[in-house]
Design a protein around this nucleic acid. Sequence first.
RNA 1: GCCUAGAUACUU
Length: 241
Amino acid sequence: VHSCNTLLGVLLKSNHVQLCWKFYQQMSRNGISPNIYTKNMIIHALCKAGNVEEAERVLLEMEEKGWEGPDVVSYTTVVDGYCRKGEVEKAFEIVEKMKKKQIEPNVVTYSALIGALCKQRNVLEAEKLLKEMRKSGVDADKVAYATVIDAFCKLGKLAEAGRLADEMVQKGLIPNVVVYNTLLHGLCRKGKMKKAGELFQEMQRRKLVPDMITYTTVIDGYCKEGNMHEAFRLHNEMVEK
RNA sequence: GCCUAGAUACUU
């Protein structure tokens, strides 16, 4: 099963969703019984294919069997599936159901919901949930923060984004490359290239290594400003590495 | 048990 799951994982990451399903059936035919990892990946594959209803059916099937029931990953995957479809109501319903089954949502579950609210531009609700999850004993992590920070950036509310970034640091969470990339993108799309340049320096002072996304974000910003000089300079710097 | 779930750019 381990090796089968490894292969399933590769197929899943490369978006070969159809093959995932075929391989899964092949497994059963060969008498290999899927474990929780297998089922969770199948649920994920169905969600990626846009077939969240079918994914939920697999989840229900797992619930039927009292033993080897679904875990927090199974539920969270379906929650995320509905979130991506924009069916936030359904997502919250699944969360209620998992709570009833004594499976507590974790930080990933909450992040998925927060992400869905952000996509609907409901940043206020998103931030509310970010705060409320702690009352359920779940601490927000970098991903949860970055999700809301990004939403504020995309709405052009850079002050709010910065406020959350500070708050995150206060909680002892060290901003990673993604958080910097998110803030950089917010600055770049507003044409604040001076500040973007400073932040780009700052992240490196903090020993973070700019990745491809960092470079494309900042290069794009300089291009739109017509500063081809800086754009090419960074491009060369990127290629050097 | 790094066999499974959540965040960022460009392009489309």
